[in-house]
């Protein structure tokens, strides 16, 4: 860990800030300078951060909507096949297209698939599940769940230059800056 071995690749530059306000300002600065591959980390949500980072509205709603539609129409197709086509059964003289009685089932299936869409869609959008993240290599970063406010500009950013990024973050008021490396498996 002392030397920069060749099996380590630079993940990005991590900067720590003293409080949410400074982090918010720093995010704004980084955003204004045209960086795209960066993220902020704080123990709690910060109001206005979405705007400061120019984040777009989450796509999750559309994923949930699609799943809900699938649940509804899939359920409709299922019941129609089962109780109208495959095994028509007369229940207390009601029509085979006994739609009011289907509604609870269709409702439940819509909700079930919407919930699947919400949970698994959230995982997918967040890049989960994964075993590890390079940022966990930083000892300091552990405080992101306690009292640390971090911003990381990733090396994948087209504008990324270690020196320039470090300088930018220092000017933005970072209290500490470190380079984070992605460690390859030794085995």
């Amino acid at each position: 860990m002392e030397t920069q071995a060749s099996n380590k690749t630079l993940h990005g530059v991590l900067a720590e800030f003293r409080n949410p306000k400074e982090l918010l300002n720093a995010a704004e600065t980084v955003n204004k300078n045209g960086y795209t591959d960066y993220d902020t980390f704080s123990p709690f949500p910060i109001h206005g951060m979405d705007k400061a980072m120019s984040l777009k509205k989450s796509k999750l709603g559309w994923i949930v909507f699609g799943h809900g539609l699938f649940g509804f129409f899939g359920g409709l197709a299922m019941i129609t096949f089962m109780s109208v086509i495959d095994y028509p059964l007369n229940i207390s003289g009601k029509t085979l297209w006994n739609v009011p009685a289907w509604i609870p089932v269709l409702f439940e299936l819509t909700i079930l698939f919407s919930a699947f869409g919400a949970v698994f869609g959230m995982f997918w959008l967040n890049g989960l599940p994964r075993f590890n993240h390079p940022l966990f290599n930083s000892e300091r970063f552990k405080r992101a769940t306690d009292d640390g406010f971090f911003l990381c500009i990733e090396a994948s950013d087209p504008q990324f230059e270690t020196e320039k990024v470090g300088q930018l973050l220092k000017n933005a008021g970072a209290s500490a800056i470190e380079e984070v490396y992605d460690e390859e498996d030794e085995a």
Partner: peptide, 12 residues
């Protein structure tokens, strides 16, 4: 509104 209808419709 639907619950009221469904219960009555189904019990008939």
């Amino acid at each position: 509104a639907f619950s009221q209808f469904l219960l009555i419709y189904y019990a008939n």
